[in-house]
Every structure is written in structure tokens, then in C-alpha cells.
């Protein structure tokens, strides 16, 4: 994987979420983020290789493209009117960046969970299959299912503030 592809895959999801929260349109959000990456790739020689600079450039580009989009489409001022945000109000954009960054980290934590464990955990707690059903479906022993379930719960409980477990459980609904 080239450096550009790596940066793309590292930042794509969180930038899309950021754009999505600002424009409330999934397709438009992806479109805007892809355009932001185009501009980044075109200018990557000008942007410092520092991770912080790259992140700032990308978030700034998304914000700029959204601003431009609404300036061009006066009829669709969803975000700007709904939220009455003024262009100069940085703090609201910053909050959306915070939200996107947090959700991105949450996604990463879940991804570090061993797949076999996550799989069984998902089937057990979300699809509410019995241990026997899971064992049959995955062609493993009932004991394995029990062990993996315990492991999954342990990972969650060790890592996550009890109040937010539901947030992490939702990620298992892939």
C-alpha cells in the first residue's frame, strides 16, 4: 500500500463522518471527502509530512468544500440554516472534529478485538442465538463458544466505561 493510499484509508472514515454531521447527506459527504483527498493528493508535495499538518489540511479542505457547496447551492442551506452557524464560528466545527475523532477511535478498539471472539460475541448477544446454535453454525464446540463469549465480555469490561458499553456493542452489529 502506497503512502497516499495509507493516508486515505486512515482518514477516510472519520472525515466522512465529519462531513456527514455537517451536511446530513451520506452521498454528498462521501463525495466531498473524495474531492478533499483529490486536492490533498494534488498538493501533497506542499503539505508537510507531519501527521498533524495532514489532518488539519484534510479537515480544513472538507470544511471549505462544504462551505463552497452551500454557497453554490443556496437552495440547500440545510446545515447553515438549521444550526445557524456562522462561518467564523470555529468552535462548532471543532466539536464535530472531536466527535469524528472519538468515533474513529471507538471503531479502532472494536477492530482490535479478535475476529473469532467478535463473531461469537455478536451472535450471542445481538442475534441472541444459544450457545448450541452458535456452535453448530460455526462448527466449533459449545465450550469454545463459552470461552470466546467470556473473552469478549472481558475485553469490553476491562476496556470500557460501563456507561458506554452499549455504544461499543452497536459496533458489533456488522
Amino acid at each position: 500500500m502506497g503512502k497516499n493510499e495509507y493516508i486515505f484509508k486512515e482518514y477516510y472514515q472519520r472525515l466522512c463522518l465529519y462531513a456527514y454531521k455537517l451536511v446530513d447527506d451520506m452521498f454528498l459527504a462521501e463525495d466531498i471527502v473524495q474531492d478533499a483527498f483529490c486536492s490533498f493528493l494534488d498538493k501533497s508535495g506542499d503539505v508537510s509530512e507531519d501527521e498533524k499538518a495532514i489532518r488539519q489540511y484534510l479537515y480544513s479542505s472538507v470544511r471549505f468544500l462544504i462551505y463552497n457547496h452551500y454557497r453554490k447551492n443556496k437552495a440547500r442551506q440545510v446545515y447553515w440554516e438549521k444550526t445557524r452557524y456562522v462561518e467564523a464560528e470555529n468552535s462548532s466545527f471543532e466539536r464535530e472534529i472531536i466527535y469524528a475523532e472519538v468515533m474513529n477511535e471507538v471503531l479502532k478498539i472494536i477492530e482490535t478485538m479478535p475476529e473469532a471472539c467478535a463473531n461469537i460475541f455478536r451472535k450471542g448477544y445481538l442475534e441472541e442465538l444459544s450457545n448450541k446454535e452458535i456452535a453448530e453454525e460455526l462448527d466449533v464446540s459449545v465450550n469454545t463458544v463459552k470461552t470466546q463469549k467470556r473473552r469478549g465480555m472481558k475485553i469490553l469490561l476491562n476496556k470500557i466505561h460501563p456507561e458506554y458499553i452499549s455504544l461499543f456493542l452497536l459496533f458489533l452489529q456488522k
Partner: peptide, 11 residues
């Protein structure tokens, strides 16, 4: 701030 919230969520 994002890192603080994250670490709060993960206790």
C-alpha cells in the same frame, strides 16, 4: 479533547 473523551469512554 477527543483523546480525553476516548480515554474516558474506555475508563
Amino acid at each position: 479533547i477527543a483523546s480525553l473523551i476516548n480515554r474516558y469512554l474506555t475508563d
